[in-house]
Amino acid sequence: MDSKQISSSEELNTNVESKKRKLVVPGEVIVSGDDYLPGEGARRDGKDVVAGRFGLAEELGRVVKVLAITGAFIPKRGNVVIGRVVDITFSGWLIDIDYAGSGFLPLDESPRFVSKSDMDQFLAIGDIVVAKIWAVKSKGIDLSLQGGKGLGKLEGGFVFRVPPARVPRVIGREGSMVAMIKEKTGCTVTVGQNGWVWLKGPTVDAEIKARKVIEFVADNVQLEGLTEKAEEMLG
């Protein structure tokens, strides 16, 4: 599991337990007073701290921020994403990572030597891959398969999408949610920061169950006791 994923999942879990968490709309006053500092998704307007987007507002000490619960994936350096190969060029692979700009995986970022004539043996069009974002540029996003466990082509299984803003909850605190789902279903699961989830299980039934629970968690991030409810579904 990528360390970036763990830190953001801890973040959201703290919020879930915080009693001050509330749903706010853009422009809504969250708190008043000079003591507060606007964090991510919030801004100061005179005496007030107001929401800069729709989401869950929370106070962490003096800092007030608004966590997105909806919206498209916004790539950041270090994110681990799941993408689909859409084209092969002479110097690398073009990867759809479900964001505005396609990702590019240069040939020399593959984990082992791949000759130019055998590129489609390693990654063919339509294949799925777990990759790390190492640069977000105006021209596009650069990907790498080096420097991380679990990066590379995914063999078998299938991918489906959850709303990217729900990924931290699907992963759970220190990866607890996804670990529970893996353990109880026997499936291998990789959650990309871009909302794409790869799943492969011992049986079709195990895969069906694992997906059902993951989608339930993603659809119900606001529920109290979500872990217990997911556990119940897993039986």
Partner: peptide, 11 residues
């Protein structure tokens, strides 16, 4: 737009 999580000053 708000529902899509787009940064907005207001509705």
């Amino acid at each position: 737009l708000a529902h899509a999580g787009i940064p907005m000053k207001n509705l």
